[in-house]
């Protein structure tokens, strides 16, 4: 339950908006829900709806409209490569293809270990530092600019190690 787990954060978020406009908090609350699993499930949507006094359908509409929210489980880390025009002019398409080939997946797919999803995205406002991508995970979003396939693979290796360490830690608890 979000309301219990993130009581403090929810209050902080709601305080940003006028009391009669709680609905504005739907996007930040969805980020909160997505942190855990890298996707938002129906229960979370229903709970957010309850907090904001709107219907679950209205929450689901938001999830569907905005591309940073996921309704389904994919990888724990989403590597989102900008392949828009300026980046493509600097080789972003080839970068992503090679990266995918090295990971043995196609764009949009998730690696066999279920950790890494590589997907093309629209402009990330870093056109001068292409090829670049962002990594979206439970921890948030970070940019990785001026990348090569090798540097990206090194990062992925690091992410896998982190995940393994985290799993190990969790299993001890």
């Amino acid at each position: 339950m979000l309301a219990e787990k993130y009581a403090q954060e929810i209050q902080t978020i709601l305080a940003k908006y006028p009391p009669d406009q709680r609905r504005s908090a739907v996007m930040p609350l969805l980020y909160l829900a997505q942190r855990d699993k890298m996707y938002v499930n129906r229960e979370d949507m229903a709970e957010i709806a309850e907090i904001l006094g709107i219907t679950p359908t209205e929450v689901a509409s938001i999830v569907g409209f905005y591309s940073l929210y996921y309704e389904e489980q994919k990888g724990k880390y989403h590597i989102q490569v900008c392949t828009d025009l300026p980046c493509a002019l600097r080789g972003a398409d080839r970068f992503m293809q090679e990266l995918c080939a090295r990971l043995n997946i196609r764009p949009g797919e998730t690696t066999a270990d279920g950790l890494i999803t590589v997907e093309p995205v629209m402009c990330l406002a870093a056109c001068d530092k292409a090829p670049m991508f962002q990594v979206q995970s439970g921890a948030g979003l970070s940019y990785y600019e001026n990348q090569t396939v090798e540097s990206a693979l090194a990062l992925i290796e690091q992410l896998r190690l982190d995940a393994a360490r985290k799993r190990g830690r969790d299993s001890h608890v």
């Binding site: 219907t55 359908t57 689901a60 509409s61 569907g64 409209f65």
Partner: peptide, 10 residues
């Protein structure tokens, strides 16, 4: 006043 259907995606 029953917004129980909505648009999803874009």
């Amino acid at each position: 006043a029953d917004p129980v259907i909505g648009f999803s995606q874009r």
